[in-house]
Design a protein around this nucleic acid. Structure first.
Lengths: 167, 167
DNA sequence: CCCTTAAGTTCCCTCAGGGAACTCGGGTAG
DNA sequence: CTACCCGAGTTCCCTGAGGGAACTTAAGGG
């Protein structure tokens, strides 16, 4: 496929997508974050080709999202665990899950619930403003160039073009 | 590639990933939500092959995420706009962008800022509990089977296995 | 009448993904 | 001591999706 390299574009979505934008990475992270950490378990659970799984895992380790660590000495066995960088992908998974729940849940309802241990209730994740806590939507936000934005093609990061939207 | 069909698995992440889990869809949605809605503009802005762009757009229209609509009569011209279902992908984009900002921004800082018009401040999106507003993390949430979860392989949706995590 | 623009299509080629078999280090059962 | 399981990958071949660039169609415009 010769994936177009997106990581060098001045767009954080493109940078994140360069790693996260394939069919398997999100599901691997879901599994690892929920306790499925061993190679064979991942291969079985996901139904992914072992070749591709090995490639994804080593990429994720390279990127510092997972670490490969020994979980037993004799015989030596390794598994994969999320780093802090990996755990911070959790909001992305929550957002994907919430969207899937809203638009693809069958009549029975969504296939899983998230319980927030802080307040003890089953919850839905909301993308909220860090300052005032209100939900962020396309309509109530605007994008502005940031300090790290070099102008030129590909500069937009959820671009500064929102003003151009009609309605 | 014969993409493994994920949409039928009882996992909302898998369902969302089936559509969203490719290198281009996130970036197309970013562009459309920020006002880049025409075929040629998208092709130029993204550097995507026109063939693949056409395929992605028609898939997104099929899925009800975008609509193809006429924006001028003479000569007849069509462009793409997000439906409500498409606009609700915004939190996913925000989460991806926030993660990219945190882990890939250069010394200069992130390439863009999000301003919340509600409170007037530049903000960062947080995945918050809909009930109490606290941030949701891997550590303070647990996953339970939901009403729509048929048991069996692939049942997990950010699975019920979190309890199995050590530490 | 020819040129330009927008929005796709078509063609060929390469390489990433699927699938299944094979490897390798290290037990454990007989 | 040999034979048979792991777990964790690696290797091989085949298919088909993505890249790239040219071609098409429809409608103005000079």
């Amino acid at each position: 496929m010769t994936r177009t390299p997106l990581a060098d574009v001045a767009c954080s979505i493109a940078r994140a997508t360069d790693l996260f934008g394939d069919a398997w990475t999100a599901l691997i992270m879901r599994d690892v974050l929920t306790g499925v950490t061993r190679f064979d378990d991942l291969a079985h659970d996901l139904g992914i080709s072992r070749k591709v799984l090995a490639a994804r895992l080593s990429r994720l380790v390279e990127e510092g999202v997972l670490v490969r660590e020994r979980y037993q000495e004799r015989p030596p066995r390794e598994h994969y665990r999320a780093t802090p960088k990996g755990e911070e992908l959790y909001p992305v998974l929550l957002a994907l899950m919430e969207w899937g729940d809203r638009w693809y849940a069958g009549p029975a309802g969504p296939p899983a619930r998230i319980r927030h241990l802080g307040c003890g209730r089953d919850t839905t994740p909301v993308a909220a403003c860090a300052h005032c806590g209100e939900p962020l939507t396309v309509g109530n936000t605007t994008q502005l160039p940031g300090p790290g934005g070099h102008t030129g093609p590909g500069t937009r990061v959820l671009g500064p073009l929102l003003a151009a939207r009609e309605g």
